[in-house]
Nucleic acid binder design. Structure first.
Length: 229
DNA sequence: GCGACAG
DNA sequence: ATCTTGTCGC
């Protein structure tokens, strides 16, 4: 845990206002609903940074529910936007979109490494990408960004709700994906609902803390990183 | 006023 | 996210 974080360069107030406005507008386009049909292909998405100013985004596509890997692609490019909590998508989405375009097999749903609506303005990167790609998406994050919750039981499969501290609104679910490991934060992005996000996450567990789509995207991000260095 | 703060 | 060794527990 990061108990203390040294102060980084202060984010430009004007930029933050602009990005906040963009999120409010995009939020109006988000829809929550079940998938039209059971997915045949599920994708995993993740990004890494080979150097401080370059980003490498990865997409893996797996058959569902067998979880057999059918494709993996990546895109590598420069990053301009700095990291500001709550505005991660503006820094990563552009490159992620380019990686998605390289896929030969378009998935039925995308599992994103990060939050869906479990975000201050309900626009985490999973929701953001869902709107831009007009694809069903949901987020699986390793750390909480916002909300309150009770610690789920230590047994794999235990689940508790992630609620907005002020309104009490359900913004996600906290899932113990493996015995005794820190829980995951799962929330719908776009064209997906909480029940589906949680169900698919559980269906993609293979004994590791991370579900296969995200775990493999993470793995290949490390492998591809060697190629661009 | 005091914390919290995805990747 | 990224930089990093040894170490604890199943």
């Amino acid at each position: 845990m990061a108990y203390y974080r040294p102060p980084g360069p202060p984010p430009d107030p004007a930029l933050v206002r602009s990005l906040t406005q963009q999120q409010h507008e995009m939020r109006q386009r988000v829809r929550h609903e079940p998938l039209p049909q059971e997915p045949r292909l599920i994708a995993g998405c993740d990004s890494s940074f080979p150097t401080p100013d370059t980003i490498l985004s990865v997409f893996v596509v797996l058959k569902f529910p067998s979880l057999e890997l059918v494709e993996k692609v990546y895109n590598y490019g420069p990053v301009d936007m700095p990291y500001v909590p709550g505005f991660l998508s503006f820094r990563e989405a552009p490159n992620v979109i380019h990686a998605f375009a390289k896929l030969q097999h378009k998935p039925d749903v995308i599992m994103v490494d990060g939050h869906g609506i479990a975000h201050p303005r309900r626009m985490g990167i999973a929701a953001h990408l869902g709107v831009l790609l007009d694809m069903p998406t949901f987020g699986v994050a390793k750390q909480k960004l916002t909300g309150i919750f009770q610690e789920p039981g230590i047994a794999r499969g235990s689940i508790t709700e992630l609620l907005d501290a002020k309104s009490g609104e359900l913004i996600g679910e906290v899932i113990r994906s493996k015995d005794k490991v820190l829980p995951l934060f799962v929330s719908p992005g776009h064209r997906c609902d909480q029940a589906t996000a949680t169900r698919l996450t559980l269906a993609c567990l293979k004994g590791y803390k991370l579900p296969e789509p995200t775990r493999l995207a993470d793995h290949w991000a490390e492998e591809f990183k060697k190629e661009v260095r």
